[in-house]
């Protein structure tokens, strides 16, 4: 069991290293990269938006009674703002992203592998790794931070609605409360870690799909394990990010 995990970790690391070796050498698959950005980013917008909205409104409504007990209702925007921007926004968006995009990449590449389409690209001397893997990993790495920022914005607006469901505050006051609390140390590390989350989702999804075997069963397993492993790696990266920001005095 332990040796399997170590072997898998080594293989994924090797796959990631291959990405860096191939990714920055011509030929550049610009058209495919833009298409993947559209699929990975634009087509994930509705799901990420709905998730962000629910996250913001639920967080506000659930924290209100406790805050009210301490007479700290005026602190709700600050608390919700910090929670969403620093932690909930990046981690929830990344997990939703892993579920939607990680599984779709794993299934798509897995299906191409078992139907010999990847072999066909290889025997044509066309470097399928560059066309299939590099473009998808770049797309997930670039799109997740943008989706997270959008999810954050939608969640904060939902929090404003949540506050106004049982009380009254103006948008200007709400915004001012959040902006005056958030610092450079809150926003920048939260954005930086989403690049790593996106990279993890892309590279693990591609690795699982690219190395799928055993027919349709293998495709299902590739899609499933792409989600499971990338979700786990997201949590591990988040833990690492907290340690680093703590060491830098940004917590």
């Amino acid at each position: 069991m332990n040796s399997t995990i170590l072997a898998e970790t080594g293989a994924i690391t090797n796959f990631a290293w291959r990405f860096f070796r191939h990714g920055f050498r011509p030929r550049y698959e610009v058209q495919e990269l833009l298409y993947q950005c559209y699929v990975v980013g634009y087509q994930s917008l509705p799901l990420v938006g709905i998730t962000g909205f629910i996250m913001g409104i639920v967080l506000t409504l659930q924290s209100r009674p406790t805050m009210a007990q301490f007479g700290a209702e005026s602190w709700i925007p600050t608390m919700v703002g910090l929670t969403i921007v620093r932690e909930m926004g990046p981690i929830i968006t990344a997990l939703i992203f892993a579920g939607k995009i990680g599984s779709s990449i794993g299934a798509e590449l897995g299906s191409m592998r078992v139907t010999e389409q990847i072999d066909a690209m290889e025997v044509a001397g066309t470097n399928p790794f560059k066309y299939l893997v590099v473009t998808r990993v770049l797309a997930t790495t670039l799109m997740l931070p943008i989706l997270t920022l959008l999810a954050d914005a939608i969640a904060l607006y939902a929090a404003y609605i949540g506050i106004n469901l049982k009380g009254v505050t103006t948008l200007a006051l709400f915004t001012n409360n959040i902006i005056s609390t958030l610092t450079f140390g809150d926003v920048v590390p939260a954005v930086i870690k989403t690049f790593f989350f996106g990279f993890a989702v892309g590279i693990i999804g591609c690795y699982k799909g690219y190395n799928a075997n055993k027919g349709t069963e293998g495709v299902g397993r590739a899609a499933n394990s792409a989600v499971v492993v990338s979700s786990l790696v997201i949590f591990l990266l988040d833990l690492l990010a907290v340690q680093i920001t703590s060491a830098l005095g940004l917590n």
Binding site: T115, E116, Q117, E122, G125
Partner: peptide, 16 residues
């Protein structure tokens, strides 16, 4: 070298 060698797969392997 592979540009000089064609390969026809049993499953055709067209990009679907």
């Amino acid at each position: 070298l592979r540009t000089k060698v064609g390969f026809l797969f049993q499953s055709n392997a067209l990009y679907d």
